[in-house]
């Protein structure tokens, strides 16, 4: 099976090891993952910031790059996957041609954990893990994509790791894209509260499907000097691969 990988600009720029982990995982399951090198950003920061013109520019580019094939598109981020799946059609509401393209591309998009569980049945593959892991349910993943069970199924399936549920797991961590920059006081307060709940679980790792949130949580960890690590779910899963 072949898929197109949209690695997201955040992972591409800041967290290449998560991109690598994603590739390793997909290859482990025999998937031929193609990485179109012309990819940039889905446009999410402009979209949530209220910059429709700019987010359309990004979206048009995405459609031209990913519109070339009919393969499934795998995205290791709930918010970017939802941007393409749910917001693109809305963004092009007044342009019939682009709207049709957007709808077609939207139908091919999978968030990584969704693809791993629903298509590859990776939760039945006996993957290995380690330590005590808890999970933050990011907002767009949970509420816009409706992906709630898939990451949990993956984490619970890990051999040699203990999964502990996070209280109020789907409460916002305060990242919110441009919110982090525009409202730093509230953003940090929310990240601090998120960290409190993480520490209450006694986990040594908090994972999730969105690097934006994990970055904000990592900052809270750093500011407090807490002994817990925030890791993308792709990294957690890839660590246990032979």
């Amino acid at each position: 099976m072949r898929v197109q990988l949209f690695v997201t600009c955040l992972i591409d720029t800041f967290f290449p090891e998560t991109g690598e982990a994603t590739l390793r995982l997909l290859r482990y399951f025999g998937v031929d993952a193609v990485l179109p090198t012309e990819q940039t950003c889905c446009g999410k920061p402009a979209d949530s910031g209220g910059y429709r013109y700019e987010s359309r520019k990004a979206a048009e580019h995405f459609l031209s790059v990913f519109g070339r094939s009919t393969d499934p598109i795998v995205v290791p981020s709930g918010s970017c996957a939802s941007m393409v799946k749910n917001h693109y059609p809305e963004l092009f509401r007044d342009d019939a041609r682009l709207h049709a393209q957007a709808t077609a591309v939207a139908g091919r998009v999978y968030e990584l954990s969704q693809f791993l569980v629903n298509v590859l049945k990776a939760d039945r593959a006996g993957l290995k893990g380690r330590g005590k892991i808890t999970y933050h349910a990011s907002c767009q993943l949970t509420r816009e994509l409706g992906v709630k069970e898939e990451p949990l199924a993956l984490l619970r399936s890990l051999d040699a790791a203990e999964f502990v549920p996070l209280p109020s797991a789907d409460r916002c961590c305060g990242f919110g894209g441009t919110f982090m920059a525009k409202m730093p006081e509230i953003s940090m307060a929310l990240a601090d509260e998120k960290l409190d709940t993480i520490l209450s679980t006694g986990a040594d790792t908090v994972t999730g499907c969105d690097h934006g949130c994990l970055m904000n949580i990592s900052d809270a960890i750093r500011r407090r000097g807490a002994a817990v690590q925030a890791k993308h779910i792709a990294v957690v899963l890839a660590e246990g691969l032979a």
């Binding site: 940039t40 950003c41 446009g43 920061p45 402009a46 910031g49 910059y51 013109y53 700019e54 987010s55 520019k57 990004a58 048009e60 580019h61």
Partner: peptide, 10 residues
């Protein structure tokens, strides 16, 4: 954001 828009398509 204007810069972002330009970069995103190139």
């Amino acid at each position: 954001m204007a810069g972002f828009g330009m970069a995103a398509k190139s």
